[in-house]
Design a protein around this nucleic acid. Sequence first.
DNA 1: CTGATATTAGTACCAAGTGCTAATAGTGGA
DNA 2: TCCACTATTAGCACTTGGTACTAATATCAG
Lengths: 194, 194
Amino acid sequence: MKKTKKERQLALTASIKENPFVTDEELSANFNVSVQTIRLDRMELSIPELRERIKHVAVKTFDDEVKSLPIDEVIGEIIDIELDEKAISLFDVKPEHVFQRNQIARGHHLFAQANSLAVAVMNDELALTVKSELQFLRSVKAGQRVVAKAQVIDRNPEKNRAYVKVVSSVDQVTVFIGTFEMYRMTEQSEGEGN
Amino acid sequence: MKKTKKERQLALTASIKENPFVTDEELSANFNVSVQTIRLDRMELSIPELRERIKHVAVKTFDDEVKSLPIDEVIGEIIDIELDEKAISLFDVKPEHVFQRNQIARGHHLFAQANSLAVAVMNDELALTVKSELQFLRSVKAGQRVVAKAQVIDRNPEKNRAYVKVVSSVDQVTVFIGTFEMYRMTEQSEGEGN
DNA sequence: CTGATATTAGTACCAAGTGCTAATAGTGGA
DNA sequence: TCCACTATTAGCACTTGGTACTAATATCAG
């Protein structure tokens, strides 16, 4: 039996989202409707044509590559940042981040979020991690959103070092704590000299 | 004065590389030659047409996004393992693992390799990381191969804990040291009870 | 059964090309 | 100087994957 319009449009949206490179013709074959119907559907849903979709994806990548700002080197999405002070990022745990068996997020993703945030909060694009201590307090599951808060807790300009503490939580519950000793690669302005 | 064919083709290549979204018509205007000349040039240089170029960029991004952070259960390739004892893995640092600016590998990739290896060496698929301490001793660059050696250094079966030390090196030089306190989720055979 | 909604069909048109043929311009060498 | 050869330009038919629009059918609900 044929799907209703609504069902089809839902499926269509999903289909295009999953594979933006599909043509109207292919879609019409998949859903057993005419090409025109697909076109009407796209209009109603305001989904752009293939070429525009592709372009969009391409532009996005291209921009990212060109900018190469620390922001896109961050795992998770930074929602607040005060350079040299503190920063907050969100990381949505998806199926690809967890162990298949028990749906628990792999540690390195939590670390990646925290570490990226520690790098980002440094007012220096060339910060490197020197040391760190981690505690994985509770397991995080797929579907959960991890909020990481980074705070610069100490500085040592002579040695080009800064110390950042990152606390990650899910629903107000702390799941991870990490402290990072960071190395600034470029000199800070204070002291002028080399 | 007009450029020679060679000069134009060089400039053309550069131009398209810098901005793949430019049409033949725009190029023809930029270089003061006909559209046909641009087409001939593209053929000689085997530069594909706009749409193909865009598609390329898009596909790349799309793939990247899907890949994004390691989907694999283990980061790097395990080349030797003695369960509950020790394990070795290799990780080839590629351009996507480094900061664009200075080509230095991002910390979380080194951590990911070490942490995965620590998980793998545990004779338990459901091991979780509880705590860890890391030292990033030297920076690793794109093109280098990181050898990580994990060793189980201590056990505490009552608490379902094990302690793993991972030393990673490039060309015999230690670049990273991590110690991991691991939690076994399934009961070990000793003690049978719950 | 009537009207609204949904679907299909068909036409003209567009961008940004490929592929091909043919004409013209420019230049270097004997 | 003229010939040969390369480079450039022009024009036409055709391709993809569409848009925009009109018109004809289906389909279903009240």
